[in-house]
Each structure stands twice: as C-alpha cells, then as structure tokens.
Amino acid sequence: MTAITFFLETETETLDLGRKLAALMRPPFTLYLSGELGAGKTTLSRGIVQGLGHEGAVKSPTYTLVEPYELADVEVYHFDLYRLNDPEELEYMGIRDYFSATSLCIVEWPEKGMGLLPEADIQLHLQYADGGREVRIEAKSIKGQALLNNVK
C-alpha cells in the first residue's frame, strides 16, 4: 500500500482536504487520525462530516467518546479515544456495533483502542510543520488505496 503527503497552511485548507476525502468515501469505511494535540484531527474530521452533508456543528467527542451523525445515505461515527483509559472500555460501549456495512467511522487517537478496533482503510497522521500542518495519508486496504489513487 502507498502513502501521500500534503502540506496544509491554514485551517481552511484542512477543512477542504476533509471535504475532498468525504467525496471519495463510501461505507463501510474506517479512517484513523493520529497526531499531537492540536494538530488538526478534529478540524479534518469536521471537513469530512460537513463534506458528507452535515450542516450543523461538528464538535469533538472528547468526553462522550463518540458523536453520531445520521445523514441521508450514511451513518457517520466520529470517535475521540484520547480520554480512554483501557481499550476494554470500548467493549462496554458496544464498539463493534458502530462498524457496520452502512457506517463511516472516523477514529481520533486509534492507538488507544488497538486490539478492539477494526483495521483502518486509511490512516492519516497530522503533525506540525513550518507554521502549518503536514498530513500523511496511508492506504491500509484495497478500498483505502482506491481513495488514495483519486485524492492525488
């Protein structure tokens, strides 16, 4: 599988990349987002959710662990596992039920849930670079590779 890298100077560019990715995603699809605090994971997630048709606010599910968005043709689940103390907590919330044939799942801090999360189709890593953000997108499945081929 391959990877591509983008440099994003502004929050608007981060939102635009999210919208571009959203246009290429079809359920079932799992996206992992990793990077330091404040690197832009939630901003990118906001672009994706809005790109899929959500018109309201997109907030970080830091305290709730998951924020659902029921859209016309897709169920979107935005996870933020930053505050997760033990991956076993995911079992108690019925984590497997979220990853269905009709869902698109965005997971921030996926390393906190390893062992209980399904494999990602793509993994994005955001990091600070030269006053902006560098985003590395890596395909982890055939479906992820197809998306990557079209996002270039």
Results as ranks from 00 to 15, higher is better:
residue 119 E to W: 01
residue 86 D to L: 07
residue 91 E to V: 03
residue 102 T to I: 02
residue 64 T to Y: 05
residue 89 E to A: 03
residue 120 A to F: 07
residue 106 I to Q: 09
residue 116 L to I: 00
residue 28 P to N: 07
residue 51 G to A: 06
residue 102 T to F: 05
residue 62 T to A: 02
residue 61 P to E: 13
residue 41 K to C: 08
residue 70 E to Q: 13
residue 92 Y to D: 10
residue 75 E to D: 13
residue 30 T to S: 11
residue 75 E to R: 14
residue 45 S to V: 07
residue 132 G to I: 09
residue 43 T to H: 05
residue 52 L to Q: 00
residue 61 P to I: 10
residue 88 E to W: 07
residue 85 N to I: 03
residue 40 G to V: 11
residue 79 F to C: 02
residue 96 R to G: 05
residue 38 G to V: 09
residue 107 V to D: 07
residue 60 S to P: 10
residue 43 T to M: 06
residue 32 Y to C: 04
residue 86 D to Y: 09
residue 42 T to G: 07
residue 29 F to E: 02
residue 89 E to Y: 06
residue 29 F to W: 04
residue 75 E to M: 14
residue 118 P to C: 09
residue 98 Y to K: 01
residue 60 S to A: 11
residue 87 P to K: 02
residue 120 A to G: 06
residue 123 Q to I: 12
residue 135 V to Y: 04
residue 102 T to H: 15
residue 30 T to H: 03
residue 37 L to N: 14
residue 52 L to A: 01
residue 104 L to K: 06
residue 126 L to R: 11
residue 96 R to M: 09
residue 129 A to Y: 14
residue 119 E to L: 12
residue 43 T to D: 00
residue 88 E to A: 14
residue 47 G to Q: 09
residue 112 K to I: 02
residue 91 E to L: 13
residue 62 T to R: 01
residue 126 L to E: 10
residue 63 Y to Q: 04
residue 111 E to T: 14
residue 92 Y to N: 08
residue 71 L to R: 04
residue 96 R to V: 11
residue 117 L to T: 07
residue 124 L to K: 09
residue 131 G to Y: 06
residue 51 G to H: 04
residue 47 G to D: 07
residue 109 W to T: 08
residue 38 G to K: 09
residue 128 Y to V: 13
residue 42 T to E: 04
residue 82 Y to N: 05
residue 83 R to Q: 11
residue 59 K to S: 13
residue 68 P to N: 00
residue 59 K to F: 03
residue 104 L to M: 11
residue 93 M to R: 06
residue 56 G to P: 02
residue 69 Y to Q: 04
residue 73 D to E: 14
residue 93 M to S: 08
residue 42 T to R: 03
residue 82 Y to W: 05
residue 64 T to I: 10
residue 63 Y to E: 03
residue 75 E to S: 14
residue 45 S to Q: 03
residue 112 K to T: 00
residue 40 G to A: 03
residue 43 T to C: 11
residue 39 A to W: 09
residue 98 Y to C: 03
residue 114 M to L: 10
residue 134 E to R: 15
residue 133 R to W: 08
residue 109 W to C: 08
residue 123 Q to M: 14
residue 115 G to Y: 04
residue 74 V to T: 14
residue 59 K to C: 00
residue 103 S to P: 02
residue 90 L to Q: 03
residue 36 E to F: 12
residue 69 Y to S: 04
